[in-house]
């Protein structure tokens, strides 16, 4: 009973607050007669959203496909790199500095280079940018997880002569799972940011244009209502991606990990 009440209030209070803000915003626009190109009212934004719904839908799908492709690539490559670095000291020493470089180099600075290399396929450029932006938390968190495996459990496995592959499968990887999932939540948001930033610079148009391109064009054309609608979609996408990974994390950890007592 109490739990239902808490869940309801945690949903209801932010919603009521949002409704209040929107109404107040609408009132301010009408009262001060603020021009639409400077600050559109929520009803203008909704109108722009409905009028351009098809364009928004296609652009959202493009942005989502860039984001999820980048996340999938970073999960595969990030986990493999983390396991490799964990298993082989030589690999750790050889590639660890480059992993740090990957994180410290601003993503925008390498976009022009990628555009030169993949000029015939901007989609690949965008995916690579998003991949570079989101791989580091996967590598870093998975590696910390692998290294944090309970030392006594390692001793137990070793005392019975477990092979390294068996230990990796049954001990190290499950032990690193909460850390990996925590990294995945960060990576999801970073992939979206990386993809959108890249699209801003690449300025890709046509059929493969994502939500950032609409945002950019709306800005150039002073279609502020459309710009707000695109901004709203990006925000919703960010929340959707985070919630999705949070839910996956909850499903995988709910039975055994303290971080997943609530969703």
């Amino acid at each position: 009973m109490n739990r239902t009440k808490i869940n309801l209030t945690s949903f209801l209070y932010p919603l009521l607050f949002l409704i209040f803000i929107l109404l107040f915003w609408e009132f301010l626009i009408i009262y001060f007669k603020i021009p639409k190109y400077f600050l559109p009212s929520p009803s203008n934004v909704l109108n722009a959203f409905i009028l351009n719904i098809k364009t928004f839908l296609i652009a959202t799908l493009v942005t989502l496909s860039i984001t999820f492709l980048a996340i999938t690539l970073s999960i595969i490559s990030g986990v493999l790199i983390a396991i490799g670095v964990f298993q082989y000291k030589i690999l750790d020493k050889t590639i660890s500095p480059y992993i740090v470089i990957l994180q410290t180099t601003p993503i925008v600075s390498i976009i022009p280079l990628l555009i030169i290399w993949f000029k015939s396929n901007t989609f690949i450029t965008l995916v690579i940018c998003a991949w570079i932006a989101c791989i580091f938390p996967i590598i870093s968190n998975t590696l910390i997880g692998l290294k944090s495996t309970d030392k006594s459990l390692i001793k137990i496995f070793r005392i019975y002569g477990a092979s390294q592959t068996f230990m990796l499968k049954k001990l190290y990887i499950p032990s690193a799972l909460p850390y990996f999932l925590s990294g995945l939540k960060i990576s999801g948001a970073l992939a979206l940011i990386g993809g959108i930033s890249a699209e801003f610079i690449a300025g890709t148009g046509g059929r493969a244009s994502g939500i950032a391109y609409i945002l950019l064009m709306a800005g150039y054309n002073l279609e502020t209502d459309k710009l707000f609608a695109a901004l709203f979609i990006i925000t919703v996408l960010g929340i959707f991606i985070y919630s999705l990974f949070n839910f996956i994390s909850y499903l995988l950890l709910k039975q055994w990990h303290d971080s997943s007592t609530n969703f």
């Binding site: 006594s152 459990l153 001793k155 137990i156 005392i159 019975y160 002569g161 477990a162 799972l177 055994w256």
Partner: peptide, 25 residues
């Protein structure tokens, strides 16, 4: 080996934990 802490794998059930040495063997 029995350690100070129970050192069970939290992601496995009790029977899966007890079975692990036999799986290794």
């Amino acid at each position: 080996f029995v350690f100070q802490d129970s050192c069970l794998m939290p992601w496995k059930t009790l029977e899966q934990n007890i079975a692990i040495p036999l799986e290794i063997l």
